[in-house]
Design a protein around this nucleic acid. Structure first.
Lengths: 131, 131, 131, 131
DNA sequence: GTGGTCTAGACCACT
DNA sequence: GTGGTCTAGACCACC
């Protein structure tokens, strides 16, 4: 698995796993119905304690990203369910404001920032086409 | 002071203070040369442990947002210095990617996201004009 | 068979089967003396592991819902026997208390809850009349 | 603390803790703003591993029952926030249907059940008045 | 085989 | 002092 976990990072390991799996789904690297490695397998693959993997999987399940088929394994959920849509939209706006603040300290104009965003989107789309 | 700290939040209190002061500077609510309350004063004003305030001031000083004039007090820095420009640009791009991932789960297109960003920028600019 | 089993659910599959058969009996969809499909048949019909079906049937037999006539098959019991009547009554009361607790967090009054219960009963009765 | 945990029960210990705290809040035994024992304290009081306590507290925080004031402790939340109201209402109705099914096997009529419910409510209210 | 739970004991960030 | 994270290793229910 392409998971790249850094135990030295300040973001918790379980959170890194959560983020990377969500990214893989958004990038279509993981498709609905795909089976994930079992907790023990993944634990062995990336040499992280099984409990930590389990914690990541549980959070992903709570968020509706994964589905657990009892006794059979863990899979990417077939349908996206969005809980707390309003709250999450609010957070997106907040993150965008943070970007504007940070831009000020780098002396970037809002136009610079928009250009940068467009470029990031371009790269993102390209990354998805390539597979 | 208009600092609005929420002890219930999951972001550390010292971080909230850092963020809000940086926001105030970006919004021109605080101007270069403005004097900040002393650690003790601010501690009393918002009833937060002085150690926490001190930690926030230290971080802001490290980031070049504040200047400490020994014996005179703490002031908003006259000039923006950018430490770690490259690293901070990288983080901005990373944050933008996070936005794209989150958008996927809310079933927003990249165009939706761009529109949202433009709107946030519009509001941001308006907020600054009003003073 | 109308059994509708969801492998994603957190309630065990064998338990779902038990619940649905008990519901069918209570709703008179299944009548005393009705023959149930064999473990193998049902296993094939709903593509569930035979062990799981067997486990459900065993539990239903223990509860007195089913009767196994050796060599003839499995049938809905002719008479209701109540095992552990007291214990089961206690559990009903406990479930009702759980409802009161949950209602508190949804800011429903006990009257709201009573009204809701009446409505559920109405629908339940209607469902039975319709066949 | 009046917590009564049974390690032999089939419901997980952390879940028992969650249920009992939610019940205490609903019964007004715990009031908004009340401080809960720290993870370590409660761990010592009921001789349960701190991790298990922490798991219960975290779930309660996710549900909005508790609030964590960083470095200061854990408190009963000041305001009830109800997430997933619709889903939880649906579950209440489902639980009520389960009661109707169970009643069938105990040969209780729907009127019997209503009477029982009224009685449980009466006791519930009385329990609250007494303090 | 799968994931869920629990214990014991350690380290760290925050206040 | 507080809670959050992680490891190591165990047991159990379910399929």
């Amino acid at each position: 698995m392409w998971l790249d976990v850094d135990p030295r990072s300040s973001t918790p390991i379980y959170q890194q796993i959560v983020d990377q799996i969500k990214e893989a789904v958004a990038r279509k690297v993981l498709q609905p119905g795909d089976k994930l490695p079992s907790v023990r397998e993944l634990s062995a693959m990336i040499t992280i304690n099984p409990n930590t993997i389990a914690k990541a999987y549980q959070q992903l399940e709570r968020e509706g990203v994964l589905e657990v088929l009892r006794g059979r394994g863990t899979f990417i959920a077939e349908r996206i369910v969005h809980v707390n849509r309003e709250e999450r939209l609010r957070q997106i706006r907040e993150t965008m404001e943070k970007l504007l603040i940070e831009a000020h300290y780098l002396q970037l104009t809002t136009d610079d920032l928009m250009e940068l965003f467009k470029e990031v989107i371009r790269q993102w789309k390209q990354g998805k086409e390539e597979r």
